[in-house]
């Protein structure tokens, strides 16, 4: 899976449009033609997309980060989109991929939470239950050839236990002490692993925040679909808190020395 959500679920083709420069509605298609394909058409590509979500386990729970950008192809279309969403009292779900599908997922989970709360019987949905539900939902939709075009990170803290797991548009799931979706899976994941693995029970909240900020900074430098405006969610025994949007210090003076593309004359 590469960092362009548009390419998720497609065979790789580096021969053309390697940088996703085509306007979305003109994406070239060179695969076999299905004569009857026009009869029913399901989601074939995401439209408005979010990029990476990062998450790590630390001493007190789980911390997640995602920027506020929703892109329309390579256009930075919406700059105040929240991609970290609280579900119930113990869980945060972070989404990359199609933002309209993510809004639909938020709606489904809201309905689910209301049903759970109205039972009034002392049972609450925790991150484990919500992750299982999402994995079943995503797999059911892909099996109908109509996937929800997202990759999701689900983090939570309930009954003294941290939980962090992944699920994507195919229904694939896995867990680790550091997770990243989209371009972050290539760029940030190695950094997160180096900083976190084996130290999950040692890392303090401040340290965890610094690890995520450093990774978000690298992503902002490297990922053309990212933005220097992001939020951090912490989920611990104190509950869920999603920060206001924040910015990082960056330095671009090195850019002058880059040669090879752009408008330089020499």
């Amino acid at each position: 899976m590469d960092h362009f959500p548009t390419n998720w679920g497609r065979p790789r083709n580096d021969a053309f449009d390697a940088y996703a420069t085509y306007p979305i509605h003109q994406r070239p298609y060179n695969g076999p033609k299905d004569t009857f394909a026009d009869g029913v058409q399901r989601t074939q590509q995401p439209i408005v997309t979010g990029t990476s979500v990062l998450a790590i386990k630390y001493k007190d729970g789980v911390m997640m980060a995602a920027d506020n950008l929703a892109s329309y192809g390579s256009l930075a279309r919406f700059k105040d989109v929240q991609r970290l969403h609280q579900v119930g009292n113990y869980t945060v779900i972070g989404a990359g991929g199609d933002m309209s599908d993510f809004q639909y997922i938020q709606y489904i989970l809201e309905e689910l939470s209301i049903d759970e709360i109205s039972a009034q019987d002392g049972h609450e949905l925790g991150p484990i239950e919500i992750h299982e539900y999402m994995s079943q939902l995503m797999y059911a939709r892909r099996s109908k050839m109509n996937p929800l075009w997202n990759s999701l990170l689900i983090g939570g803290f309930k009954d003294g236990k941290r939980f962090l797991s992944y699920v994507d548009l195919l229904g694939t799931t896995y867990s680790a002490s550091t997770l990243a979706t989209g371009y972050g899976a290539f760029i940030a994941q190695p950094l997160l692993r180096k900083a976190v693995e084996g130290r999950e029970d040692v890392i303090t909240e401040e340290e965890a925040r610094k690890i995520l900020e450093d990774s978000m900074r690298v992503l902002f430098y490297r990922d053309a679909r990212s933005m220097n405006k992001f939020q951090i969610a912490t989920i611990s025994s104190a509950g869920v808190s999603i920060s206001d949007s924040m910015q990082l210090e960056t330095a671009w003076s090195f850019a002058e020395n880059i040669r090879g593309y752009g408008a330089q004359t020499q």
């Binding site: 039972a119 019987d121 049972h123 949905l125 484990i128 239950e129 992750h131 299982e132 539900y133 079943q136």
Partner: peptide
């Protein structure tokens, strides 16, 4: 168990 990976609440 399949949808939520939990034992069903007995009262429900």
């Amino acid at each position: 168990r399949m949808i939520f990976n939990r034992p069903m609440p007995v009262n429900r």
